[in-house]
Computed example of a mutant assay.
Amino acid sequence: MSNMAQEHVDFHHLQHNKVQSASLKTLWITLSLTLFFTIVEVIGGIMSNSLALLSDSAHMISDVLALGLSMAAIYMARRASNSRYTFGYLRFEILASFLNGLALAIIAIGIFIEGVRRFITPQDINFQLMLIISSIGLVVNIVLTIVLSRSMKEEENLNIQSALWHFIGDLLSSIGVIVSAVLIYFTGMLWFDPLISMVIGCIIFIGGFRIIKESYLILMEAVPDKFDLEQIRRDLLEVEGVEDVHEMHLWAISSDHYSLTAHVFVRESIQPFCIILAINETLEKKYNITHSTIQTEHADIHPHGDYGRTFSQRSSRNT
Rank of each mutant, 00 (worst) to 15 (best):
A278V: 06
A72M: 07
F265P: 10
F227E: 12
H291A: 12
D10L: 02
N280S: 13
F112A: 02
D306N: 05
S173C: 08
G45D: 06
F205M: 15
F87V: 04
S83N: 12
I211E: 04
I204M: 12
L51A: 07
S21Q: 08
L131K: 05
M130G: 01
G208R: 09
M4T: 10
L90M: 07
L31E: 10
S180C: 11
S48H: 04
E284S: 15
R309I: 08
G110M: 05
Y85R: 08
S62T: 15
T293E: 11
Q295M: 11
G101V: 11
I146F: 08
V179Y: 00
H246V: 11
S83A: 09
S180M: 06
E230V: 14
R91Y: 00
E230K: 15
D244R: 10
T282N: 11
T121C: 04
R314L: 13
T86K: 14
I125S: 02
V147E: 03
W191G: 00
Y216V: 13
S197Y: 07
L260D: 02
D56N: 10
S259E: 01
R267Q: 14
Q123A: 11
S2N: 09
C202A: 13
E268Y: 13
M60R: 11
H302V: 11
R234Y: 13
L148Y: 02
Q6E: 03
I120W: 03
N17P: 09
L236G: 04
E154T: 09
I218E: 09
L144E: 11
A163D: 03
I204C: 08
M47L: 14
S32Q: 03
F273N: 14
R233I: 01
I120G: 01
S255Y: 06
T293F: 15
V147S: 01
T38S: 08
Q123R: 12
F37N: 09
H16M: 02
H166M: 01
V147T: 05
I212R: 11
I270Q: 12
K18M: 04
L27K: 11
D10G: 00
A163H: 01
